[in-house]
Structure formats: structure tokens, C-alpha cells
Design a protein around this nucleic acid. Sequence first.
DNA 1: TGTTAGCACTTGGGCATGTTGAGTGCTAAG
DNA 2: CTTAGCACTCAACATGCCCAAGTGCTAACA
Lengths: 337, 337
Amino acid sequence: MSEPRKLEVLRAIVEDYVHSREPVGSKALVERHHLGVSSATIRNDMALLEEEGLIAAPHTSAGRIPTDKGYRLFVDRISAVKPLSAAERRAIHSLLEGSDDVEDVLERTVRLLSQLTNQVAVVQYPHSSRAKVRHIEFVLLAPRQVLVVLIADSGKVEQRVVDAGADVSDEDLTVLRGRFLTGISGAPLENLPQLLAPVVALCPPALQGAAAVLARGLDKLAESSRDERMMLAGTANLARSNVDFPLSIGPVLEALEEQVVMLRLLSEMAEDPRGVTVSIGRENPYDGLSEASVVATGYGPGAAAKIGIIGPTRMDYPSSMAAVRAVARYLSRILGS
Amino acid sequence: MSEPRKLEVLRAIVEDYVHSREPVGSKALVERHHLGVSSATIRNDMALLEEEGLIAAPHTSAGRIPTDKGYRLFVDRISAVKPLSAAERRAIHSLLEGSDDVEDVLERTVRLLSQLTNQVAVVQYPHSSRAKVRHIEFVLLAPRQVLVVLIADSGKVEQRVVDAGADVSDEDLTVLRGRFLTGISGAPLENLPQLLAPVVALCPPALQGAAAVLARGLDKLAESSRDERMMLAGTANLARSNVDFPLSIGPVLEALEEQVVMLRLLSEMAEDPRGVTVSIGRENPYDGLSEASVVATGYGPGAAAKIGIIGPTRMDYPSSMAAVRAVARYLSRILGS
DNA sequence: TGTTAGCACTTGGGCATGTTGAGTGCTAAG
DNA sequence: CTTAGCACTCAACATGCCCAAGTGCTAACA
């Protein structure tokens, strides 16, 4: 029995099952795909595939469906990434061209991706943990309220209002700003905690209290700039593929709402730096996603931020991978300008 | 046939149906609620209620379920808002105390509300269309890049990076900031478009170009401050109550994702300024929510921003209303500080 | 050794049929 | 206006039956 044909059979099973969402049997297989052999031969092959845990039969006299492992092999060794149709390329173009705001671009992007794939799309805000301090600003809003602004060279701006604890004047703030700027300008955000203490110590004694408060404010800003966010679209697609989640889509929705979970998931998929990464069913670290697959890739500088889709294991991987990759490329290009 | 008893029967039907999610019949009713009459009498009453369109029978020999109109009457005339349990009050307290960031507070709030009610919770960011300009700031980031910051007296801060078109110096920016500040400080955000043109005209000729760019930047900031946002939590609860949405939860998820839709929905529910507003099933302007109910109320200054929940028509209205009201009050109190 | 035809066997799904029980509407009496 | 009683309806469940799809196995074949 030829190894290549076994793969061919697996491929056929996956494709048929994805298409029909019904267990596929030996006879149907030989009819739909012109493999040059009879159904009996296919049966033998299928028995082997089942032994290897690549496919499984829901019950005695039904066809086979791919297991997680089967999908894995399919994705790794078989599927060629399917090129997008011209219409899809056009859609990407027209939808993503001509907008300026990063937030706006991301929003359009997830929507587009979710429509393209008919799955839930998710995009992580561009990374900034390696960003450096470009500028800080202290603005007196009210006698004791100070607005602290932190601008990173990634272009991200975080702001926060803090209570100075005692009255401070505009002049005080100017002094403090100078001290802080010389102390931390250009420093990576992640180093802020260590750098701030000495700066505070160097401030005029009368302003120690205010300096400490401001330092804490900056620290929190850096922190919340580090803690990343994401954006969702197409959750309604989950409902459509209700059948594909035997239990319920509840756990999936929960996972999607837990941004922490999703972000970790995405960043752990970083392994393959130049392609699209796929995480299938139980491969998934999070329990709620044990019946779901994630297709993701990086975008932007260093492909550090992630974009991807989430759907049932029974998913059209080639198309999904193509869509994710294409959209990520366009996104990189637009944001790179 | 006594009018009060008819209401009592409706009330009983609603309560039983909400509790059991099964059509409720005359016999079961007299058993569970000690109305002082027999099932035959109830049957007569039910026939009347059905004539009035308050209840309906799914098929000939089944019990009755409330119609939208029935729920409406129940909410308007019958249901007493159920006070929260001590445990729930404690939960509200402990979860909402001791956080500073508005974003953070809102996030905790929606989560809390969704857990309290087992429904999807939604909160609108505090209003700011009536907010006034408190402060503006221009920060030179790079030779031509200027960060424009707009701070409203609502505490909201919007920022944006603009390309000045030509090199500007820090001194230029200070001059411009002064002009702009005197021109628009204290002005309502919605008036910015009209106010900015004259300010630009008054600027030094050499800085006209930069001034125009900055003015446009401020304008956009005011605009995006006006366009409101919202926050969601508990979408997974929809999946749980899958049964309650005969079709699918798809349309509901779609609606939730369309922030524009949701925001309009919420603001259109403004009618009852001192209580909780309920919109039931087909009363709902948006088609996708024709099987859902919305319970919402205002919070914060003038109760201008909205908070609420969305769930199936078959919902425990008294509890939901109580929870929404209580959470809104706590939220007002915390943000008011 | 790999492929094929044939065959006995398994099993879920569809269908017709029967039964049950909750629930109704109506009528007539209290 | 209320109630008991009764005939009637109908979804839900159960039962039994058959069928088609699919399998595994064996024996023959190239």
C-alpha cells in the first residue's frame, strides 16, 4: 500500500467532510475523487489510517471523520494554501485602502477577515512592549489633578489622571517633567519601574510627594501599554456553525471574552515566524477551545502582533490560511507606511 | 370575573413560565399558586387573556405562554422590583470599590452585571457630547509630527498624531496653543467646528499651514469623542439560553457587534428618566432583537449614559430590573466622586 | 504483495403505528 | 360567577420494522 495514496485518501476525507459535514464512506470517496482504485482498497487504507489515529468512525456503520491528528497531518503535509479569488483580493483592497486611524484600520481588518472566512476574526493591537519612551507630559487639570501622558515611539499614547496628593503649580510640573524626561527618555517601557525610583530621589525635596505620585502614574501607564488588547469580529458566525460545536458555543464565547486567554493563546502560536500557524482542537491550551481551531499569523514590524481566526475544527484550512495570510500582508503594508 | 384576579393569573403564568420555560396549564397553576379558585375558573380567565392577546398557546393542547404584550403588562403593572440579596449587594460593593480608571470601572461593572443577571450586559461610555474643552496640548514628537491632545471636562482624553505638513518648532506650538486655548477653552465640543476657523485666521501668517492642520486634528478628536463607544460582557450567557431563541442567537450576536445599532437602541430607551426602561421582543426597533428584551437605565450625570442587559424575552424581569438599577446607582456614585 | 469482488454483519435514521397524559373548551348544575 | 364533569385534541414518547450505507473479512486474482 502506497504511502502517497494514503495521504491522498486522508486529504479526500478531510475535504469531503469539511464540505458535507457528514462522515464519509469508502464508496462515496471513490465516486467523488477519481482515485484509480476500488472502494475495497480504500477501505483497507482507511483501516490503516484509523489505526494511526488519523481518522475515526462515530459508530460502526458510518463513514470516517478526521481526528485532530488527522487535520494536523492534513495541514502540515497536504494542503496547499489556496490562492484568494480576484474578487476577494479586490475586497481587501477597497476595504483597507484610505484610512488613517490605526484603530479604524484594525476594525475594518477584523471585519473583513471574518467575512472572508465566515469565522470569528481577532486582531491584536500592534505590539509595544519593546517600545521606548518618546515623550511625557504633565498637565494640570485642577488644583490637585494632574493628567499624565506617556507617548511611546510606537506611536501609542496612554494617559491617566492622578491625584497629586497636595497642590502643585504649573511651574512645579514643568520642573518635574524636566527631571523625568532626562531620566527616562528613550528608555524601554519595560525598564520604567527600575528607572523611576532614582529619578524621584533626585527631585527637589518639596516636590517628593508629587514626584512619587507621578512616577506611580507613569509606571501604571507603561504597564497598561504593555498589557495588550485585541479586537473581535464575526462572533455571529459561531452561531451559524452551531452544529460543529457538539456541546455548545458557550465555552468558545467565554474564551473570546477573556482577552487574557486569547492574547496568550495568540502569542504562544509564535513558533513559525514566516508562515501561518494553526492550532487544532485539543492541541489548544485552553479547554474551552478544545473543539475549535485557531489560524493565526503575525503582522507588522517583526510580525510581533498577531491576527487570526477561530472556528470549528471542521474548517476549510487552505482557504482560511490563505485569507489570514493575505490580510496580514495587506495590514503590514498599510501600517508600515 | 374580577379584573385583579386576571392580573394575578397573568403574573402567575409569567412567573411559572420564566421559571420552567414550559407552557403552563390551568391545573399546574392552581397547584403552585394558591389562588382560591379551581382550574376551570382559571381556564375561563385564560381564555379571556388569550382574547386580549396577552398569552398564547403554542398548540391546541398545551399550556399558555406570555406574549410580548403579556410581558409588557407584567412589567408595567404587576411586577414589583425585587430587592437584591445581601450577597449580591456585597458582590457589587467588593467588585466596584477601589479602582480608579474609568475604563477599568466600566469593565468590572459589565462583568458584574452579566454575572448578576446571567445575561449579556452592556455599558455605554460616559457621555461627552455636551462636554466642554478643558485643556488642549500640542506636543512635538518629531520634526513634523505633532501629538494633539484634547481634554474634556468629562475627564475624557482624546489624542491623535498629525503631520504638520512643514517643520514647526516647540515655540511655534506654544504660540499656537495659546491662540487655540483662548479661542476654544470652555467651549462645548459640539461647537468646535464653527469656533476653529476664526482661531486659525487669527494665527500668525507664517503658521497658518500648521494651524490649519492642528485645527483639523482637534476637530477630528472632538468628533471621535462624540461618537460613543460601549463595552460588552457575558455573551456566553446567550449560548446557555440557546433554547430561548427559537431561530438562533446569530442575529443577537450580530446586533451586539454593531455598536451603532446598540448605541441607538440604548439612547432611544431614554424615555423614562427616573426608572429602568424595558423594551420587549418586537417592541424592539432592531429586527435581530425581535426575540430579545433589553433592560436599561441611565447612569452618571443626568443619567445620560446608559447601562443595561440583553436577554431572551423569557427573562426574570423583576430581578433583572433590580440588578440593573442597583448597579447603575453604584456606578453613578463611584464615577461621581 | 497489493488489489479486488463478494458477502455477512452492524447500525443509525426514517416511518408507520399505538399509547399516554396534559391540557382545552363546553355544558350544565350549584 | 364558579365549578365539576366530560369529550376531544395533540405533542411527546415508545415500539417495531425496514432500509441504505458502511464496514471487516475472506478468498481469488495480477
